[in-house]
Amino acid sequence: MSGKGRTIAVCGKGGVGKTVFTAIMTKLLSSRGDMKILVIDADPASGLVPTLGVKVEKTINDIRLKIIKSIKESKGGDKLEISSMLDYEILDALAEYPGLAVLSIGRPEDEGCYCRVNDLLKDAIKLLSKSFDLTLIDGEAGIEQINRRVMMDVDDLVIVSDTSVKGVNTMSTILHVAKEGNAVNYSRIGAVVNKARSEKEAKQAMDGVSIDFLGWIPEDETVREYDFSGKSLLELPDDNQSVEAVKKILENMRV
């Protein structure tokens, strides 16, 4: 592990399995017992919260609106007051479990340009993530959104794809945007192929994309069943094949 406060962001086309991958990583890491994990649900359409079976009562967007309201009523105060309020509200917004806290970004609503609030929010999230051993971000397809709404820089960027051409094309696009360097800053980047039938198939699907292959996750009936019946993926059995697969991916990433 590269020290305290490491941040891993997961992105990729909708439906490829970002949320499933994040949820299984969460299961593995939060049950280690010696780590505190922060999981950020940064995809408003995602459903990470039900996939983990956690309860979130307040989102970052709720906090944002509340702060903007108090600024409009000129009760915001100076920078220290606003950041203090954000730190306070964010702690209150955490869904807390042993070794694990979940923070939901929520659906963005346009409130005009409150860049200052957005920047302070990102600072507050960064500060919070520094107090955890590891932060996982379940992102949207685009990485611009992570940069805009969650954090300016992460340690690891993991692009997930299934074996479809569309999924892999999206991976290439994201890789391209990431390498241009105008979106989120990162130190390492790698790919995970989900819903594959074999390692061979997974690697084949990614043929021609020049990115580190971190591992693959099989098409898994149990995962599908859990998702179908709304059961928390945190309760997947330890010997489940997808859990084993994600364990290997984490080893490859030296988490």
Partner: peptide, 18 residues
Amino acid sequence: GASEIILKDDVGVELGNP
């Protein structure tokens, strides 16, 4: 040491919480 979060599960006592 580094800033450290105290999660609910580790809380002995909480003062003046919301």
